[in-house]
Amino acid sequence: MQALTNRAKPVDRRPMTFMEKLYVPAIAKGMGITLKHLFQRKATVSFPEKKRDFSPVFRGLHVLNRDEEGRERCTACGLCAVACPAEAITMEAAERKTGEENLYREEKYAARYEINMLRCIFCGFCEEACPKDAIYMSETFAPSNYQRKGFIYGKDDLLIPDPKTGK
């Protein structure tokens, strides 16, 4: 029969030789291999004490950015929600009132902005889609939680502290 790919290997169907039938040499060889592994470096990283370094392009938890004056950059355009393949982002837009110029940079802002971290696949498309440089992926990941609703991160979880007031 013609092989479909050139990677196919014929199965060795020769009858076993006496040494192979004895099994003992093969078992001894296997035991040698496991014995070697007994002393090899372990692959485990003891997590809470030691942390594995992330790659420089690691995509972790999102943060919502502010500008130099501490105003929220997000304008609730919804492009991130559209780009999101996991449909993890929900938002509600609101209009900036007079006197709120020190809070929001654009005339329209996100009154509610939620990311469901259980849905999110940390692809980073939201970060790429944002025209206002408002959403970034940080270098941490979502800590564990006892409830599902604890994984829905609202604005207070996502917004970075104000650079001026520090809050």
């Binding site: 470096r41 485990t44 003891s46």
Partner: peptide, 13 residues
């Protein structure tokens, strides 16, 4: 422990 070491793990610690 032995199982873990043979499988390149640390085992209960």
């Amino acid at each position: 422990k032995v199982a873990a070491w043979i499988q390149d793990r640390l085992g209960p610690n």
